[in-house]
């Protein structure tokens, strides 16, 4: 579903990605690990379509369509979802209203009929229950005054509502205590399916204790330098990045 070939990308004229290639099939879970500054979050932002990142070479194909020229909202409607490392606050906009607009804009682009407020509310409550989240969440302002854990859970909640084909989790584990990490991971696990792929970007192995990846890639200096199965993450945990990068 996703094919990244020889991707080069600049941020503020600094080369961050230097020829990255990655292939993700439907239903697969890929973990991308790497030290700070290796380009992990840049990769997520480029796939999602953040315009502050300038692609200088290479291609990103999503279901055989080059998406690099598409605006972020178009990619989102095609089924690309990114869980933000730092979810953004939008004061005065309730979670339910935000999701209502997001879901219906996405459905419109897919030629599906709009869901009524009542239908959506029912669905939102159902998904909140699955994620063991309080219904009061819906009437709060988007991420406004949320704790770190609440923000991340709100991301996963949106993921459950938007039903993307590809979900990129950008350092979803950062800033979470162990209990919150467990809740978020079980939420993600409940959303895994044969049709939905995940790219999990993380600094530490501990998230992978809860979400088992099919593939693990080590990103260093803008390139994937090593790929393997789940055991690679364990090896990394034992030897550190130094042990692998050398």
């Amino acid at each position: 579903m996703l094919k990244i070939n020889n991707l080069h990308c600049n941020v503020n004229d600094t080369k961050v990605l230097k020829g990255l290639s990655l292939s993700v099939n439907e239903g697969e879970v890929h973990a991308i690990m790497g030290p700070n500054g290796s380009g992990k979050s840049t990769l997520a932002s480029v796939i999602a379509g953040n315009e502050n990142y300038e692609v200088t070479n290479g291609s990103v194909r999503f279901f055989d369509k080059d998406i690099l020229d598409e605006a972020a909202e178009v990619r989102a409607r095609m089924g690309v979802f990114m869980s933000f490392q730092y979810p953004v606050e939008i004061p005065g906009v309730t979670v339910s209203n935000f999701i209502k607009i997001a879901v219906n804009e996405t459905r419109k682009a897919r030629d599906l009929k709009k869901l009524s407020s009542a239908e959506l509310l029912k669905l939102m409550r159902h998904n909140l229950d699955l994620l063991k989240m309080d219904h009061h969440f819906l009437s709060r302002s988007m991420n406004d005054g949320f704790s770190g854990g609440e923000k991340k859970r709100n991301e996963i909640f949106q993921l459950s509502m938007l039903e993307p084909k590809l979900a990129i989790l950008d350092e979803t584990d950062s800033g979470l205590d162990i209990d919150a990490l467990k809740i978020v991971s079980s939420g993600v696990n409940s959303l895994r399916s044969e049709k939905r792929s995940f790219i999990i970007i993380t600094h530490y192995q501990r998230l992978l204790d809860y979400i088992k990846p099919d593939h693990v890639h080590i990103l260093h200096n803008g390139k994937i330098i090593k790929s393997g199965n789940a055991s690679l993450a364990l090896e990394l945990e034992k030897n550190g990045y130094d042990g692998i990068i050398k």
Binding site: A48, G49, A71, P87, G92, A102, E105, Q158
Partner: peptide, 28 residues
């Protein structure tokens, strides 16, 4: 902010709707 706009867009909300949403939230 660009970050608010990008966040909305990443959820499938177009530029126009995003500005409206953010402004209406601010004026609530």
């Amino acid at each position: 902010g660009e970050d608010q706009m990008f966040y909305c867009q990443q959820r499938g909300i177009g530029e126009k709707e995003a500005v409206g949403l953010i402004v209406n939230g601010y004026c609530k």
